[in-house]
Amino acid sequence: MEERLHIADKHTENIVVEMQHVKKAFGSNEVLSDINMQLKKGENLVIMGRSGQGKSVAIKCIVGLLEQDEGGLKVFGKEVKDLSENELKALRVKVGFLFQSGALYDSMTVKENLEFPLTRVLKLKDAKEIDKHVHEALEGVGLVNAIDKIPADLSGGMRKRIGLARTLIMNPEIMLYDEPTTGLDPITSKEISMLIMNLQKKYQTSAIIITHDMACAKITADRILIMDGGKFIAEGSYEELENSPDELVSSFFK
């Protein structure tokens, strides 16, 4: 009996994000109708689906940017809805979010963008230490030369990589990627996908990756979920879903 309990504990320990019967509507428009999923530690989970199906809404609920109407959403075993302001802040430090556009702060240089979370959230004061972190993060994405540029001077791919560096500078345990390769050429897309894989190997981060890019999904996915009509309709590895008899599922892979 004790052994069984121990196994159960270990099982829940390994789950970092859990959504159960999550529902979310905007006015009369129901976006998420019944979302159930689990993200395991160290796993890359890819979510695919047609545009406007609520994929971004689902991951925004995870970091408390949006609140679900119904259902349970636990991150690191804690219900996000019930967290206090400080607890939510602490959670957000552990969860990195890469926005579709990179979401760099326009009025700041790349260096200031990367310093922002270090000085405001981690409250670092030592200039040398901050510089070291900034250089390390930029080296990680291969853009040390862009340190003094402003976001307007960067290409789309560079912005995403700087956005990634700004998120990774906090060493998050979970990464949420909102269409990391959309709008990029195949070579840059592959570079970003490889970067995501390297991060997973290097830091053992768990990740949810929303993408329409099959090449990205093939490289990064340990498991794929397909969303349609506000719920997940299929789950499996890339190969399993590629050969799925379901027409909608297999149509993603054609």
């Binding site: 957000r92 702060y105 326009d106 959230v121």
Partner: peptide, 15 residues
Amino acid sequence: MKVAEQIDAMEVSGA
């Protein structure tokens, strides 16, 4: 900033 999700990014980073 809101449209470009910069405010959301700030909030999500814990700032």
